[in-house]
Write a protein that binds this DNA or RNA. Structure first.
Lengths: 181, 181
DNA sequence: TGCGTCATGTAACGGGTTACATGATTAT
DNA sequence: ATAATCATGTAACCCGTTACATGACGCA
């Protein structure tokens, strides 16, 4: 059950409402870490509050409830972080599709790989920009910015995907006896 | 519903029993593409057979049933492959944990990153070995080996993870004002 | 004969998706 | 006024996990 720990983790940074958290998933987490929508987030927040892991710290307009993590919640999050499972279960539809590329013929494989090369380049540019912006605003002597680490991981992952897609396209061309200028 | 397409894809290569397919998931797919166990695979095969996408082509000892993909099944697989979704939903607990590294202090983050560096190195070595073995046995003028492509993707992904973990450890050390010899 | 592997299943439960549903506030 | 955004929820269904369950075959 990773959703609750994702929520606890986000609330450990700063208090937020279900709506805010939904936005954070959509903007930051869902591209490479975890995906959830409001209809899953709201009931889970209610459950977490019932268990005392989070608490409502403010109520605003339109029924908005701002949650904050409690000490119990922090302890639960810490415990979860410090005890990772031995093996991580992977379920990645993109990689599955790449795995099954061999069921297609070369032209079709190329048609699938080209958008991969393009989209990874776009993601890469977006991430690079937001990292550069963050690096520039933070003072150079700042405390260890641990959140910078995962951004770098994302960056490198998209770079890898991009390089690989270009390599794969090239290899298909060669095996196919064709050359592109 | 990717499981059925994973099964169709594996059966597109060669006929297999539920037991065989369970083994393929455990050995090949589950580390980076898709995960499923026998209790999910057997019922799905029954369903696929009911819909005419696969068919039993042999029955052996101990109730073993060998399935093969049908023309209908091939058409369904092809259609699925050629129509990828606009956005891929990602749910990766490992990356989520890296995302939440910033909720820990530097010593704890280091303790989590060290095994990452080690395990990715091991995975890398295993994959490299099996790729080299496959490259060596295949004739150099062989037809486009599309299945070689995803192996390369796995290789590069683990390399990226490894390099990143070492970089992250180093960066934490620096920010922490410490040096390791 | 007994252990390991091959081989297949069922049932209950929990997590995640799709679809449905409502209403307040703010900006134009 | 009215559209966009903010803000929260419920219910049915499907997929995946955990636990339970059984038995045949091959080898030492």
């Amino acid at each position: 059950m990773s959703l609750r720990h994702a929520l606890l983790g986000l609330l450990a940074e700063e208090p937020a409402s279900g709506y805010d958290l939904t936005g954070k998933f959509a903007r930051a987490l869902q591209r490479y870490a975890w995906h959830a929508k409001h209809n899953q987030i709201y009931p889970e927040l209610t459950r977490l509050a019932g268990e005392g892991l989070v608490a409502v710290v403010a109520e605003g307009a339109r029924g908005r409830r701002t949650y904050a993590i409690t000490d119990t919640g922090r302890a639960e999050l810490r415990n979860w972080m410090l005890h990772p499972p031995d093996v991580f279960v992977v379920r990645n539809e993109f990689v599955l599709r790449m795995f099954l590329l061999s069921t297609l013929d070369p032209d079709e494989a190329r048609a699938l790989l080209r958008p991969v090369a393009e989209e990874s380049a776009r993601e890469l540019a977006t991430l690079r920009e937001s990292i550069d912006r963050a690096d520039a605003t933070a003072p150079p002597t700042a405390a260890p910015e641990l959140s910078r680490l995962v951004a770098e991981y994302g960056l490198r992952s998209f770079q890898t995907m991009h390089d690989w897609a270009l390599w794969a396209l090239d290899r298909i061309d060669q095996a196919d006896g064709r050359r592109e200028p």
